[in-house]
Design a protein around this nucleic acid. Structure first.
Length: 573
RNA sequence: GCGGGUGUAGUUCAGUGGUAGAACGUCAGCUUCCCAAGCUGAAUAUUGUGGGUCCGAUUCCCAUCACCCGCUCCA
């Protein structure tokens, strides 16, 4: 039966994350603290694997990249000259009648542009967390928790250039925490005040210094965009839920020549949302942090003169020859392509993408009969509610549209019984359904059957899965089997995250691993004791093959390396 | 920050002005040679937090915190 992604996948994922140890609310025992989350035993494995896969793809698998890990605390002047002190401190005004909020510089005049109501006085909002370096809390020690990791790369440009002996074009990758005092955090880990970025600053020649056959900043921008898009697809994101969105000229940051967002279609109300932005920042940042910049360059980039920096962040290009004079060599500020991804956002996207429910067997007709009755009663009630709601559609809760959606989904699910348990449950969980007592009753009747006949499976790419292999004894009261299984686990732990579990029957052990996305379950049985082979069970297809214990590591490695896209696995299942 | 909603066991949810139940999950033992089987037993909730009304509040009221939805903002 077809895998199923319920409409309330997001809610189900949140509780799975808590239940299984992926994500916990921070400081929970003290009532929590707004929009901060902790990654549990499985969550930290997943997030680390996302970061590791990214680092491998953008550093190890290329010839033109190095890494960096710069400090979270930096000199306040970094944020002054980067422009963050100015742009992260926006005066905001509220309308007293319609309660809408606007940036003060976007409003002309003293009235609300929407309703003409009276506006409050502008109030300052600082998006950066302030902190003090040193024991005295005065202005002299003031600085900020970094709102992006990028600046650490820019201010280290000369250090990296000298120590790595790089030639343009080359790039620097960095992973780390960043902090923004969001006005409106929310959507679980999607928008948080503390988050983790995976950023690349890729330095290249400005257009006028290009030689014949060299790639322009625009070409490199496009190449990075496609490479980053492919990365998500290669790790299992369905391209149908991934898109590139060109930023409109008016939403472009002032330093950007072009920015394309990579957006993922999250379930529920979040919908299409940015998980990475690929920007062409031109020579803005390196120039901003340079001393002795000519006035015409400052004017072009709308920058103030930098009276504090001790360096000019330039590149000396030995191979350049002036086309007019033939003079060799040139000094210039490189352009920058910035693929800036959210590690925590990507982790959430991979989780959403991986979440599937599957019905594995059909319940007997007599077990389904109560479900049909409950649904029939609920449908009669909904028809009545629709008639009532249509008399006063404006104030009806649920709305007529919600009621009709529940009605049609529920009717379709009943028609599909006994194979449509999941869509039955899904219909009962649609928005507004929690207000309908008879629907809740029908859902309760369905819950037991769902429990018995369905499974939850995280179809994570094996490179991302928190556990790669679970070693399970078929019988736990058979010492030879248990000992062998424990030995197999020890054998594999050198190469993979492997676990051993014997605390339930084999069926339950499989389901547990399915729910946390473990791609391989290795089962030690009686045949193992005779011929030294175990069964390797595939998470997605539930199919099994036998493999000698000695060959396990090799088999897993090759299965992971050749891991096909989810759609392909679906067809072959 | 504004408006609406929610907050009861690990999770999903019942329930009541007289100190809380279920299902699943978890743990232990028995049993079981392949997909949440069965049997026996166990642990887990000062009903988000603080205050008020009341003889008595989880239930009513107020405040606060957190989460969700919608604005606003945003990489």
């Amino acid at each position: 039966m077809q895998p199923y992604k319920p409409d309330n996948t997001f809610d189900k994922l949140v509780s799975l994350c808590k239940r299984r140890g992926f994500v916990f609310q921070s400081s929970e025992i003290y009532g929590g603290v707004g929009s901060t989350w902790d990654y549990g035993p499985l969550g930290v494995e997943l997030k680390n694997n996302v970061i590791r896969a990214w680092w491998r793809a953008v550093v190890y698998d290329r010839d033109d990249m190095d890494g960096l890990d710069s400090a979270i605390l930096m000199n306040r002047l970094v944020w002054q000259y980067s422009g963050h002190e100015a742009t992260f401190t926006d005066p905001l005004v509220d309308c007293k009648s319609c309660k809408k909020r606007f940036r003060a510089d976007h409003v002309t005049g003293p009235r609300c542009p929407e309703c003409g109501g009276e506006l409050t006085a502008p109030r300052m909002f600082n998006g950066m967390f302030r902190t003090h370096v040193g024991p005295v809390e005065d202005e002299s020690g003031l600085t900020y928790l970094r709102p992006e990791t990028a600046q650490g790369i820019f201010v280290n440009f000369l250090n990296i250039l000298q120590s790595s002996r790089r030639k343009l074009p080359f790039g620097v990758a960095q992973v780390g925490k960043a902090f923004r005092n969001e006005i409106t955090p929310g959507n679980f880990t999607f928008r948080t005040r503390e988050f983790e970025q995976m950023e690349i600053e890729y330095f290249c020649k400005p257009p006028r210094f290009l030689k014949e056959g060299e790639k322009s900043d625009e070409q490199l921008h496009e190449e990075w965009l496609q490479a980053r898009f492919r990365w998500y697809v290669g790790l299992g994101i369905d391209p149908a839920r991934l898109r590139q969105r060109e930023q409109e000229p008016k939403e472009l940051a002032h330093y950007a020549k072009r920015t394309v967002d990579i957006e993922y279609l999250f379930p529920g109300s979040l919908g299409w949302s940015e998980i990475e932005g690929v920007a062409n920042r031109q020579d803005y940042d390196l120039t901003a942090h340079s001393r002795d910049v000519p006035d015409d360059a400052l004017a072009r980039l709308k920058l103030a003169r930098n009276g504090h920096s001790t360096e000019k962040l330039e590149y000396y290009d030995e191979s350049y020859a002036d086309p007019q004079t033939g003079k060799k060599g040139a000094k210039y500020v490189p352009f920058v392509i910035e693929p800036s991804a959210g590690a925590t956002r990507a982790t959430l996207a991979f989780l959403c993408e991986a979440y599937w429910e599957e019905q594995l067997s059909a319940p007997a007709e007599e077990a389904v009969a109560p479900l049909r009755e409950a649904a029939a009663a609920a449908l009669r009630n909904i028809a009545k509610r629709i008639a009532e709601a249509e008399k006063r559609p404006a104030e009806a809760v649920p709305t007529p549209e919600q009621l009709r959606a529940i009605e049609s989904a529920l009717a379709a699910a009943v028609a599909g019984l006994p194979d449509s348990l999941l869509s039955f449950d899904g219909a009962c969980g649609l928005p507004g359904a929690d207000r309908l007592d008879l629907v809740k009753k029908a859902r309760a009747a369905c819950a037991r059957l769902c429990d018995e006949h369905t499974r939850v499976v995280l179809r994570l790419h094996p490179a991302l899965a928190p556990v790669t292999a679970a070693v399970l004894p078929l019988k736990k009261n058979e010492p030879a089997i248990v000992e062998t299984a424990q030995r197999v686990k020890k054998l594999l732990q050198a190469d993979f995250r492997a676990v051993y579990d014997d605390t339930a029957g084999i069926g339950k052990l499989y389901r547990r691993q399915d729910e946390i996305g473990t791609p391989f379950c290795l089962t030690v049985d009686f045949q193992t004791l005779q011929d030294g082979t175990v069964t390797v069970r595939d998470r997605d297809t539930m199919s099994q093959q036998r493999c000698a214990i000695d060959g396990l590591a090799g088999l897993l490695r090759s299965r992971i390396a050749g891991w096909p896209a989810p759609a392909v696995r679906q067809e072959n299942a």
